[in-house]
């Protein structure tokens, strides 16, 4: 059901049919036999931003890490771009996927430039192509290369580091982006700024994005669809409008929290 809206994302009919990522009955147990994820069946559509929303321990980060094989499922089938996860060479799979995390994970001993250029360099791109791409991607995230290229991560603010992390994830132009609360550690102003810019960027780039968050407003703002997770299982997948009017017992507290915030500002 396509719902036109102004403040929330809509599900674009232009998205292709075959899922970019597909989970079928996927389970994950730790080495100590703790079940972090049980029976996950979920499709990620090409070109969408799918938000994985839930509290800590809901299994959302686990699901994300299964996609780029940082973790391996204990049961079930997971496929990326039509191919089973185990059939992918892990290195090729990861080069196919951009990964941006909350702490950034920037290499502290490399400049911004070297951090962003690393994957294209490892992929043996021609140096002129690398140069063009790094400049392009740094501009995309709002960090002019002339000013920021030679800086080291510890010379950047938190927001700038996250921008570099995003640039690095985009550098080799992967079709899939995995983001694990990338804006979580930022102050609200910077966070809102980056959210807005990310949304605009995605409209240009049309990547398939799986975005983990525990922030319901971020989910409503950025997501084409929201997959709500709790205690290791999927509660449901909703378009933002549907989410706001859902009857599910787990969804309601989120909606209430969101409404309360809205009302607090209106009163």
């Amino acid at each position: 059901m396509v719902i036109p809206s102004t403040e929330v994302q809509s599900v674009t009919p232009a998205m292709s049919d075959s899922p970019a990522i597909e989970f079928v009955n996927v389970e994950f147990r730790t080495a100590e036999n703790r079940v972090l994820l049980s029976d996950l069946t979920l499709s990620v559509r090409r070109g969408e931003i799918l938000m994985l929303l839930g509290p800590s321990g809901s299994g959302k980060t686990t699901s994300l890490k299964l996609i780029n094989r940082l973790l391996t499922p204990s049961a079930g089938r997971l496929s990326i771009d039509g191919r089973a996860a185990e059939d992918w060479d892990p290195i090729r799979l990861r080069r196919h996927i951009g990964y941006a995390i909350q702490e950034g994970g920037l290499f502290p001993h490399y400049t911004v430039w070297k951090n962003v250029a690393l994957v294209p360099t490892l992929e043996k791109w021609e140096p002129p192509r690398i140069k063009t791409r790094v400049e392009e991607v740094l501009h995309m995230v709002g960090l002019p290369p002339g000013e920021f290229g030679e800086r080291y991560p510890d010379q950047l603010s938190g927001g700038q580091r996250q921008r570099v992390g995003l640039a690095r994830a985009l550098a080799a132009d992967p079709p899939i982006l995995l983001m694990d609360e990338p804006f979580g550690a930022l102050d609200p102003i910077t966070r809102a700024e980056l959210q807005k810019e990310f949304k605009q960027l995605q409209q240009r780039l049309n990547k398939t994005v799986v975005f983990v968050t525990h922030d319901v407003s971020e989910a409503l703002l950025l997501g084409n669809r929201i997959a709500l997770m709790a205690s290791g299982s999927l509660r449901g997948v909703y378009a933002p409008r549907e989410f706001l009017s859902a009857n599910d017992a787990v969804v309601k507290p989120y909606v209430e929290a969101f409404r309360t915030m809205q009302q607090a500002f209106q009163s």
Binding site: L70, I91, R92, R94, Y99, E103, F107, V119, G165, R168
Partner: peptide, 27 residues
Amino acid sequence: VDPPVREAAIAMGLTRRQLLWHVELPL
């Protein structure tokens, strides 16, 4: 080596040897 840095490096698709050369040994 800082775990997020290691995790990011693996997620970027660095091979074992590249991880050693670009991340582990320098740090």
